[in-house]
């Protein structure tokens, strides 16, 4: 039965999920969309963020979102190191296409297996006051464990948008994504700007990781489920458009929730893949592309 309640609940749940998807995808939109760095390891950095939130939550009882926020500078530094290595080994010599991709694949693999070795295959979860409760508006239930990540995700999107459009470094990043040659002629150092931008992109993974483990339990290989999603969102959102990322995240969230509601949850994963292929085949510039 296609009841109205089910429909409304699916839409609301999809929108909540979509805000969270945007948070996970922002880093890809910056790295891939703006900097042209195909960081396929991004979802695994997100999972790493989840495990840090888990470790601090279970040992010290710290709130996962607070941990995520505290992790931002650490992840920024991690991003700086990764970019420096990537730049020196591949980008400088123009070998980023084959070896750079394999490099990120290797990173993805090492982090995932390392988490597996330390924490095992069991699902891990965090405890916080807002996990478990639900709001009810009429017949529509809103789980707080979905609402909080959605709001934080939207907040992150707005913050990143403001950073990129209003600050000096943000404008420099946008300029690099347009034409790094011209920037070099003006005396700015594109490598330095790209380092900061990539650090920023990894920094988003700390918070996104905290959101991931608030939404539900996490195991080491869960990042694989997000690879298709984040790239589908980045491409659909128009490669580097921050507002587009949020819009694409919401679309994917709603479509996935509908698929899960009406066809079964295991098919939801195929949705992002289908969207990705269709967008690439029909309109590679994305829905919100320039």
């Amino acid at each position: 039965m296609l009841s109205l309640d089910l429909l409304l609940n699916a839409i609301v749940a999809g929108i909540l999920l979509g805000g969270f998807y945007a948070a996970v995808s922002l880093g890809i939109s910056v790295a891939f969309g703006l900097l042209d760095i195909v960081n396929i390891a991004h979802p695994v950095f997100v999972v790493l963020g989840s495990y840090i939130a888990y470790a601090l939550n279970s040992a010290l009882g710290l709130d996962p979102l607070l941990t995520g926020l505290l992790g931002v500078p650490v992840f920024f530094a991690l991003g700086v190191v990764v970019y420096r290595l990537y730049y020196a080994s591949f980008e400088k010599t123009g070998e980023e296409s084959l070896r750079g991709l394999v490099f990120f694949f290797g990173l993805l693999f090492i982090i995932e297996v390392a988490l597996l070795l330390v924490y095992g295959v069991d699902y891990r979860m965090v405890e916080a006051a807002y996990i478990g409760d639900s709001l009810h508006i009429g017949s529509v239930g809103i789980a707080l464990r979905l609402l909080v990540p959605c709001l934080v995700g939207i907040g992150m999107t707005v913050a990143l948008y403001l950073v990129l459009s209003r600050t000096f470094w943000g404008r420099a990043i946008m300029a690099v994504s347009q034409d790094s040659q011209a920037l070099r002629l003006m005396g700015a150092n594109p490598v330095r700007i790209k380092t900061i931008a990539f650090g920023l992109s990894i920094a988003t993974a700390s918070l996104a990781g905290a959101l991931l483990i608030v939404i539900g339990p996490v195991e080491p290989s869960i990042g694989r489920e997000y690879i298709g999603r984040v790239f589908a969102i980045a491409v659909l959102g128009g490669m580097g458009s921050i507002g587009g990322t949020l819009a694409a995240g919401l679309i994917l969230g709603v479509v996935e929730t509908f698929t899960a509601t009406y066809y079964g949850p295991s098919w939801a994963l195929a949705v992002s893949f289908g969207i990705l292929l269709v967008v690439l085949a029909v309109r590679p510039a994305g829905l919100f592309g320039r």
Binding site: V38, I40, S97, L101, R224, E225, I227, G228, F231, A232, V235, G264, S266, W267, L269, A270, S272, F273, L276, L277, L280, A281, P284
Partner: peptide, 28 residues
């Protein structure tokens, strides 16, 4: 055919998601 007319990375990205999707089909 769907991805090779674009830049090479899109082919790679599509193959990243491919195995998981095929696995989902087989699981069902």
């Amino acid at each position: 055919y769907l991805t090779l007319r674009l830049r090479g990375v899109f082919f790679s990205i599509a193959t990243l998601a491919l195995a998981l999707v095929l696995q989902t089909f087989v699981m069902n």
